[in-house]
């Protein structure tokens, strides 16, 4: 628990890995717009092919890219069933009690499942190919225009970077507290609802106390050094987009636009 957790990130050398973080994030958003606006089965077929291509380009094993989606198979099953049986009661194949499965329901179910599945797979490609710190930098960069409308982007950037620095420390501290309370005989679970809440207090209260104590110390140290939290913070220089970044953006924009227009 001492290392900064890296989430899904797997370092590798691929076209996708080399793209700049903010370009990738924007591409992802564009593709999402495209997926959400897809309304036909053949449309989803195209998306499946595109996603497969992305996975291939990023040199990720299909297992890694689709793992979290496969784990949701029961959820998918339920969604499919619900849509199949309840979506269009006017024109069902059969009618039995409250169930009225229909062709339209089946199509709708497949589309909903496909949509969630594709979103998961694509975002996995993004996460696996981008280090967490690169990603937060990219978000910061995309947020920076908000400065113009009075959002203190500098302050937000500071908050995010402090938050990231604290993650490993708090992991360790939480682990220590859990061990200390376990040794004192704490049981963090209870079958009764009311006791369930009380059972985690020995863990939660000390974790918050420890975390806020650190916040107290750090903010005092920062104030002592004259930080006032205005937007005077560092103006970060972001590297300009490369040709590959522009190309990727253009492609994704074209695909998204195509699907929005067909709709």
């Amino acid at each position: 628990m001492r290392q900064l957790p890296v989430g899904l990130y797997q370092p590798a050398d691929s076209v996708i890995h080399r793209l700049s973080g903010s370009a990738k994030l924007l591409c992802m958003l564009l593709l999402l717009i495209g997926v959400v606006n897809t309304t036909t089965l053949p449309g989803y077929g195209i998306w499946v092919l595109l996603t497969a291509l992305l996975i291939r380009l990023a040199r990720i094993s299909p297992g890694t890219a689709l793992g979290s989606a496969v784990r949701l198979k029961w959820f998918f099953g339920v969604i499919l069933f619900m849509n199949l049986c309840f979506y269009q009661p006017e024109d069902p194949w059969v009618r039995w009690w409250i169930f009225s499965p229909s062709y339209a329901g089946l199509i709708q179910g497949i589309q909903v499942v496909a949509r969630v599945f594709l979103l998961l797979a694509m975002s996995n490609v993004l996460m696996v190919s981008t280090a967490p710190l690169v990603m937060t930098d990219a978000m910061e960069r995309l947020l920076s225009p908000l400065r113009l409308i009075g959002v203190p982007a500098g302050l937000i950037a500071m908050i995010l970077s402090v938050a990231i620095q604290f993650i490993p420390t708090l992991f360790e501290e939480t682990d220590n507290i859990r061990k200390a309370q376990t040794a004192r005989g704490a049981r963090f679970d209870s079958p009764r609802l009311w006791d369930k809440a009380k059972a985690v207090l020995p863990l939660l209260v000390p974790v918050f106390l420890a975390a806020f104590k650190r916040a107290d110390e750090l903010s005092m140290a920062m104030e002592a050094r004259g930080y006032r939290g205005d937007t005077q913070s560092r103006k970060k220089k972001y590297p300009p987009f490369q040709t590959a970044d522009w190309l990727a953006l253009l492609l994704c924009a074209a695909v998204a636009a195509a699907f929005v227009m067909i709709r």
Partner: peptide, 27 residues
């Protein structure tokens, strides 16, 4: 103060990452 609010916010964001992991052990 604003600085303290900012740092408390940062700590709370970090806890959003840490707490779900810490609760993994509990069914």
């Amino acid at each position: 103060t604003v600085v303290k609010k900012a740092i408390i916010t940062a700590i709370c964001i970090a806890l959003c990452v840490v707490l779900p992991q810490a609760f993994h052990a509990i069914p």
